[in-house]
Amino acid sequence: MNRYALGVGAAAMVVGAAALADPNTDVALEIDGVAIKTIAASAHADNPIGDTLISGWHYRNDETRALQLDDFDNPAFLAVELGRELWEAADGASGKSCADCHGGIDGFAGLRANMPKWSEAAGRPLTLEQWINWSRKEHQGAEPWKWESEQMLGMTAAIAVESRGMPMDVQTDGPMAEWFEKGRDLYYTRTGQLDFACASCHEANSGMMLRADHLSQGHLNGFPTYRLKWQGIGSIHRRLKGCVQDTRAEPYAVGSDELVALELYVSWRGEGLDIEAPAVRQ
């Protein structure tokens, strides 16, 4: 009798797991009255994901999603607060703060949505981190921040939150075309002992379970993101490195040309979605 009951229980669990594997699309993300588009029509007919883009927010469980609904609950806001303090703080040989030249940080509304962005001076696209360090060197005469330092993450988070609710919009034509193609090549290049490309999980198997992880479409609109796994906030490149490492390959370095190109291409795949940074994920 007991064994029979156990069998029924196990069958019910299997059914439950299958149902859970779909992203929960019955919920909507609204923060402080601002609706954020987390399910959207793709801006490009040739987007390999298809017509409907779904943010990673919908793939997470109820508790994780809830953390993002109120900025007070969102642990990434400790980083945002730090970034806002740094915005006002003088640094480097110039003795100037970001605010001395740029004014309010709200002047950067929309900036995060355009990243990575072409730099005439550098002759290449720069990510938000690279733009910040460029400005620290050129305008403040300050030492660059390390990519994954709390100062850099704080500043990128504080700038990103100003773009919340604005659509992702990166340049892919003109001088960016070459980088875009490179990013696309990398997205479909199989690497590592497991011989996986980005597309193996996030395109061919998105929505499926990879062991305990629910594979999303792999969008970047929530970065920098607070990950419960990291117990902290992290950059796009940290996440991309993690993915490459999971295929058991030697990951590209943060800030490398490969990851910049990949960031550009993956951002294009997310065009249609709104910036929701700083997001909270598993």
């Binding site: 400790l78 980083a79 607060e81 730090l82």
Partner: peptide
């Protein structure tokens, strides 16, 4: 992270 600072939402 940032310095020790209390916050309250009520």
């Amino acid at each position: 992270m940032a310095s020790i600072k209390p916050r309250v939402k009520a």
